[in-house]
Amino acid sequence: MPRLDRNGDTSVSIEFEGVAISAFEGDSVAAALLSNGYRNFRDTPVNGASRGAFCMMGVCFDCLVEINGIGNIQACMTEVRAGMHIRRQRGARDIHAQDGSL
């Protein structure tokens, strides 16, 4: 998705589902994923339906992703950091799977 022209951005590299993508410092994870064309962020634990970012202000809890092994993180409320490993949240969070920190 196109970005509007900006002054002095610092680009960072992150990973989504194992694919390296680029983002900019100050981006929320949600903005970074959307700007790379990813809309589907997770499957719900209730019916397995696909969901993505909706409110972009921390209200709806629909943009949940797994970051560095920690599940159910609000992508719209989390800023990207270089080297972040982001995955889709698949159903309910697996709390044993965590292997790192933000």
């Binding site: 903005a31 809309r39 589907n40 972009m56």
Partner: peptide
């Protein structure tokens, strides 16, 4: 309205304000 790609217009504006992200 729960499908990915459906968002609030306010959410679209947040994207504009943070990183200038747009969805053409």
């Amino acid at each position: 309205w729960t499908l990915p790609g459906v968002m609030g217009a306010g959410a679209a504006q947040v994207l504009l304000k943070t990183g200038g992200v747009t969805l053409p």
